[in-house]
Design a protein around this nucleic acid. Structure first.
Length: 124
DNA sequence: ATCTTGACTTGCC
DNA sequence: CGGCAAGCCAAGA
């Protein structure tokens, strides 16, 4: 088994906590994992170790699927639609509607930074 | 060690 | 949110 550093473990743990039908952006996962500029790293981690988590629930800042670049865009969209996520005509996810807002219980259980969660929940 | 890449973001048109 | 330049930072060559 290849060893995962704390950040990688944290990222996978957070992605695993995203409920069906919800999504998070790479930047938000990075923020929740404690790395404000780690969005890119999140993408790389999912590319390498994503098989073990619901990787389809992570999209880019605009609700778009960055995975088209590596050929799994179609698959990601199918998986998301299968769990109820709807796409707009421009092929993006409506973040307003599907972005995950972690509840208090999850915040405590995963020890998520409250300030970050607060921003996520107050962002209309 | 240096250079290039890229499942990203933000700032500026 | 379309297009582009500039940050960002770890992995691969």
């Amino acid at each position: 088994m290849d060893k995962l550093n704390p950040f990688q473990t944290r990222v996978l743990e957070i992605v695993r906590a995203i409920p069906r039908g919800n999504v998070l952006t790479y930047g938000q996962v990075a923020l929740l994992a404690g790395a404000p500029r780690g969005a890119r790293q999140v993408g790389r981690i999912l590319y390498a170790r994503g098989r073990t988590v619901p990787w389809q629930r992570v999209v880019n800042r605009y609700g778009g699927l960055s995975t088209y670049k590596v050929g799994s865009g179609h698959e990601q969209r199918a998986l998301l639609e299968k769990e109820g996520v709807t796409f707009t005509k421009d092929g993006t996810v409506d973040l307003q509607k599907h972005q995950w807002r972690p509840g208090a219980h999850t915040v405590e259980k995963l020890r998520l930074p409250e300030n970050v969660v607060f921003e996520m929940n107050t962002k209309m």
